[in-house]
């Protein structure tokens, strides 16, 4: 659901995450605001907590402290199915390994995302087909395992933006791709987000992607020294 409110797409305040209750801080963000339609990239070392940060924003993990707001709604204040429904309507995700539903067709993968959206049932198929066409997939009935990695990435992008999300969270979206198609894939993802007015948070360890984004943050710079995750400064 496109963010039509005056709220930022994503707003993180005083966020910290510990794997164990009394353990060291694994992810910390003092404050981060991503405006509607804005595209930012967060870099950091492998294992530095970039994916965890996305999972926190998506409401798949509980922060140890702080607040995460998506389109003005505190996602960590939502419980159970309300949070799941909110995620289905406001957040799209693109994964390093695409995480498409095997055994399902291209079209069904996109329709699966629309099942949980607020888009009317009667409009879902048309929207899915239009998105796939926009992203250059001409075989909507092909099975996922019949597609190349590059084509799978396009389907993953189509699925992420299908519900007209407020924010798309991309976790190392090009790391599984050949460098020759990685750039095209990023173009595709960014353009799709722009044309759907979705904000984009991309986490990657690939510094070559940095110039493409409105803002670049190093994960370790998002927290004050007091709140920095253990060992954050030792990472390259």
């Amino acid at each position: 659901m496109i963010n039509q409110s005056n709220h930022p797409a994503v707003e993180l305040s005083d966020l910290a995450y510990r794997y164990a209750i009394a353990g060291p801080i694994a992810v910390a963000v003092d404050r981060l605001i991503v405006e509607s339609g804005e595209q930012i990239v967060i870099t950091g070392a492998s294992g530095g907590g970039k994916s965890t940060l996305l999972h926190l924003i998506a409401g798949l993990m509980e922060p140890s402290q702080g607040e995460i707001r998506v389109a003005g709604t505190s996602i960590n204040g939502l419980r159970g199915s309300k949070r799941d429904r909110f995620r289905g309507q406001h957040i799209g995700m693109v994964f390093q390994t695409h995480q498409l539903l095997l055994g399902f067709s291209v079209l069904e993968n996109v329709l699966a995302a629309l099942m949980f959206s607020q888009i009317k049932k009667s409009q879902r198929k048309a929207r899915a087909l239009a998105l796939l066409e926009e992203l250059g997939i001409n075989a909507p009935n092909a099975r996922i395992d019949e597609l190349s990695l590059g084509q799978q990435q396009r389907v993953a992008v189509a699925r992420a933006i299908a519900c007209s999300p407020t924010i798309v969270l991309a976790d190392e979206p090009t790391s599984a791709l050949d460098p020759s198609i990685a750039s095209t894939a990023m173009d595709l993802l960014q353009n799709a987000c722009r044309s759907n007015n979705a904000a984009l948070i991309c986490v990657t360890h690939d510094h070559t992607l940095v110039d493409r984004f409105d803002q670049h943050h190093r994960l370790e710079d998002l927290a004050s020294d007091r709140a920095k995750p253990a060992g954050a400064n030792t990472c390259p």
């Binding site: 798949l60 159970g80 799941d84 995620r87």
Partner: peptide
Amino acid sequence: RRQIAVLRVLGASKLR
């Protein structure tokens, strides 16, 4: 397990 996790990410509740 993976399919269920993907459905959860897409917005399916635990009950669903």
